[in-house]
Structures are given as C-alpha cells and as structure tokens.
Write a protein that binds this DNA or RNA. Structure first.
Length: 516
DNA sequence: GTTCAAGGCCAC
DNA sequence: GTGGCCTTGAAC
C-alpha cells in the first residue's frame, strides 16, 4: 500500500494524464498539466497563428493514438480544458517564469487536497459523499502540518504569505461585496444538500477520483443527411475558407476517428454555416436552450441610450454607469441559469468576478456586430463618446483592437449561437474555480456549439476578448482604486468588483510578450 | 543553487 | 507537422 505521505505530499506527474489526449503529463504548460506533445502542438498553433478546420462535425475524439488526425478538434480541446493562448509569448523570450505561477501553485494545492481525499476513501460511493468528505477532512487535518510545510517549498512557497497575484476565492471579500451577495441571495453550499435538492447536480458533477481520459463525452456522429438535403441553400452563405485565414490556412484530414465509429464523414462542404432558422429547426441542442435566456437584442442600445441621458457629463462615468447596468442584468441572468444557480455562493461570486468584464464586452460586441449600436453616444455635455470606449471600460488604447474584432466577427457571420457560447464560456471561467461542474458546462457549450459552427477561429477571437477584458478591468480598477476619479455615480456593484479586481483577476507580473 | 515553464532544435 | 529532448532564465 502506498503511504499517505507519498500519495499526498508528492505531486505525482506519472499518475496524471493529459486532459487533452490522455498521454503522460510532463508538467504545467500554458496553464494546464499536459503532455509534451500537446504542449508543442499548442505552442506551434498559437505562435504560427494556425487556423484549422475540421472536416467532420468539430467533435472528433482526441486521444493519444489519434491526436494527429484532427488538429482543429485537438486545439479546441486544448482551449476547452484550459490551455491559455496568452501564455505563449509573442516575443518568444526563453526561460523565466510566467504569470500563471500562482495559478499553478493553487492548482497543485487543489490536486494535493484531492489526493488527500482519495487516500481516505477506498469506496468513493457517490451516495456516501457526505461520509467521504468528512473522513477526508479528518485525514486532511492529520496531514495538515506536513501539507503546510510543502506549501513552503520553492514551488509553493508564496501561497500562504503572498496573495497579491493569487486568484483566490472571494470569501474574505464578502464584506466588500455586499451588493453582489445580496443580489445573488442565499445559496446551498453543501455538495450533498445540492445533490439532494437538485437531482441533476449529482450526475452533472463527476465524482472523484477523476479520470480525465474519460471526461470527454464521446459524442455520437450526427446524422446530417436530412440536414444536408434540406438546407443546401444555406451553404450558399458559407464563409469562404480564404476569409477565415490570411496566410496559414491548414485543412484537417480528420475522419472523425475513434470510438468505434466506422462511418465515414458526412458528405458536406467543410464546416457549413447553417442559418439560425435551420439550426433551430434541426437541433434541439443545449445551446438552443441556453439561447432562450439571453438578453433581448434591444437591451444594449436601450441601456446605453438611457444611461447617456441621465449620467453625469463625463465619458468615464458614462462607461461605468453602463457597466453597472450590465452587471445587474448579468447577475439576474446568471441566477436563472440551471447550472450557475446550483453553485455555492462562493463559486457564483468567483465566476461573476472573473467574467463580468468579459461578458460586458461580449454583449456590446454582439450588439455592435449586429448593427444595433451607433458608433458613438452623445452625453449631456454634448460630448460624443465612442461605443468602443464604453465597451472597453474607458480604456481608449484597446478600442482599435476591439473595432478590429467587431469587423472580423461581422465577416465571420457572428450569430446568436456564437454570442451565447461566448457568454457561457466567459461566465464558466475555468480559472475562476476548479469546480468540475464548470468544466462540464464548458464542455456542453463547446459540444453544442461545435454542432452548428466551426469554432477554432471564433475561439481565438473569444480568447482575445477575454484578454482585453482583463486589461480593461485592470485599467478601470486602477483608476478607481487610486481615487483619481472622484466620487463615482451610482455604481455600487461595479465598485465592489473594482475593489477586489486586483486580488481576484490574474495579475500579470510581467506583461512582456503577452499583450499583442 | 534549484526549480520549472517557457522556447528551440531536430530526427522522424 | 509532430514530439522528445535540450536550453534558458526569472522566481524562489
């Protein structure tokens, strides 16, 4: 029998499998414990700005034996599992540590905690979850001294003393987040109680021990025959491949391998772009359901017009007031989501803190792409405030990049399904928490999204939006927290987010090479 | 001095 | 293009 100390105190990379392909893990790479080959693949893809296209349904199985067959689905899985494009250095500087150091530390700590729980239970029966965790708690206390000692190792040393760059749970800040807590209301924190009260929860959350190799649902190949015949006309609107990539188009040779499927790929043009009507007609997917809760199309222009009329004559206050309104809507929307509502209040607050700025930008981007917003809004001083300035929380330096994103999305035919996927991927941010329900939801969204759209290019744009949202949020937080702005308008919720931004967002200790 | 996550190299 | 191994260098 392996001793507790061995299993718990020593992170065992040999026992870990790459969440992308199931191969042996060689260490943390770009935000995730992966194998050497997926590390190299991800690096090459990002560095060379490759854009793949799946020749099947963007849902190919990826494992060690077939990972080379469909780079599109492999890259999609890399992103899904949490690899970060921004960890690939634009300046190609070698050596050194990166901004994810604190994230790796926290992840190690989580893994060791999970190992501790595994050690204490020989039969992790889901029905005995309460007992399972109680036993683990006792044993974890038993090894706590050694565990804390390990946290002081060179790798983990700062986790107990220096939380400046730590993405931590907002519990210590609940006092500072009264408005958010009030809006969220009370929540069921106990996993067992949640499972009892929400029968779907128990099946949605994978039990420990967790096996990454089987985490991916091996999705059945869709029968496209009827879809193909009926919607042939919609292929007329296909995005020409040449518009998807400027120079480095790579075509996948995927044949939807693995999982015993002996069907050949459906005879279809590469990655058709069905219209929203045909999608609604032929799919009753998770994404279609999720779309039903989205804010209506007139919401953003209505909010901006309203705020422009009543806000103080200051562009930045205008941007903040709009963000405040969007935040309130975001909390209301999130609370109605079947998965979000099942999370503990801690997790909910973590997710909202990590995602509000991204979702704010996604919302205005969507409205802009759809032509529902003017280029600027006039405030009471008569000043014209560019819509991009409002979207980027007052960070003028990011507006040109945002405008470029709007144009690219428009050219790609960005639709409500893409918008829906962007919103959910932003909300269920894997960096915000390691709750497995979050990855389950992300997987569902990406799988459903993959049924109707090619996702590699859009995923890259989503990552770009996420990156600039971090910059925008930090910019506004710095201005707000420095006190240079004077008294804000009625933006209590936003102010709470800004007060805790530095401690809950990934803080880049070195920006060299990360910002395009 | 050690660690480890970056990028680079090169046989395949 | 892939993937195993090597080099680098900031953080500790």
């Amino acid at each position: 029998m392996v001793g507790i100390e061995t299993m718990v105190l020593k992170p065992n990379l040999d026992a870990e499998v790459c969440p992308v392909c199931g191969d042996r893990v060689s260490g943390y790479h770009y935000g995730l414990l992966t194998c050497e080959s997926c590390k190299g693949f991800f690096k090459r893809t990002v560095q060379n700005k490759k854009q793949y296209q799946c020749s099947a349904d963007s849902n190919c199985h990826v494992d060690r034996t077939c990972r080379k067959r469909c780079p599109s689905c492999r890259f999609q899985k890399c992103i899904l599992m949490g690899m970060k494009m921004e960890a690939v250095r634009a300046d190609r500087m070698r050596g050194g540590r990166n901004k994810f150091g604190s994230f790796y530390k926290r992840d190690r700590a989580h893994r060791m905690q999970r190992n501790a729980m595994r050690v204490t239970s020989s039969t992790p029966d889901p029905t005995a979850q309460h007992q399972y965790f109680d036993q683990a708690k006792v044993k974890t206390e038993y090894i706590k001294a050694d565990y804390d000692a390990l946290l002081q190792s060179p790798t983990l040393s700062s986790s107990t003393t220096n939380q400046q760059n730590f993405i931590i749970r907002p519990n210590p800040y609940i006092e500072q987040q009264e408005s958010l807590a009030t809006l969220l209301g009370t929540s069921i924190d106990d996993q067992v109680l949640r499972a009892q009260n929400f029968p779907g929860y128990a099946s949605a959350v994978k039990q420990e021990p967790f096996d990454y190799s089987e985490q991916f649902i091996h999705h059945q190949l869709q029968d496209y025959s009827a879809f193909h015949a009926t919607t042939a006309a919609s292929y007329m609107h296909m995005i020409p491949i040449t518009t998807l990539s400027s120079s480095t188009q790579v075509t996948s040779t995927s044949s939807n391998s693995g999982q015993g499927s002996n069907r050949s790929s459906p005879i279809l043009p590469l990655c058709p772009v069905p219209t929203e009507k045909t999608v609604d007609q032929f799919y009753n997917s998770t994404l279609t359901e999720m779309c039903k809760g989205l804010p209506d199309e007139a919401k953003a222009p209505r909010t901006l017009s309203m705020v422009a009329r009543v806000c103080k004559p200051d562009p930045l206050i205008f941007a903040m007031d709009v963000a405040e309104e969007n935040l309130k809507d975001l909390v209301s929307w999130a609370k109605t989501d079947q998965y979000f509502s099942k999370l503990s209040m801690d997790d909910q607050m973590n997710l909202l803190q990590a995602s509000w700025a991204t979702i704010h930008i996604v919302d205005l981007t969507n409205s802009m792409v759809r032509g529902e917003l003017p280029l600027s809004f006039k405030i009471s001083s008569g000043q014209e405030v560019p819509t991009g300035y409002i979207a980027l929380l007052g960070n003028q330096n990011l507006v040109a990049q945002w405008n470029d994103i709007v144009v690219r999305l428009r050219n790609l035919g960005f639709n409500k399904y893409d918008y829906c996927a962007f919103r959910f991927l932003a909300l269920f941010d894997p960096q915000a928490d390691t709750n497995s329900l979050i990855n389950t939801v992300r997987h569902q969204v990406l799988r459903s999204w993959g049924e109707v759209r090619c996702t590699t290019v859009l995923l890259q744009i989503f990552e770009q939006i996420r990156r600039i949202s971090v910059e925008a949020q930090e910019y506004l937080a710095e201005r707000y927290n420095s006190g240079a702005m004077g008294p804000p308008s009625n933006t209590s919720l936003l102010c709470e987010m800004l007060r805790t931004t530095r401690r809950t967002c990934p803080v880049y200790t070195s920006t060299a090479g990360y910002i395009p």
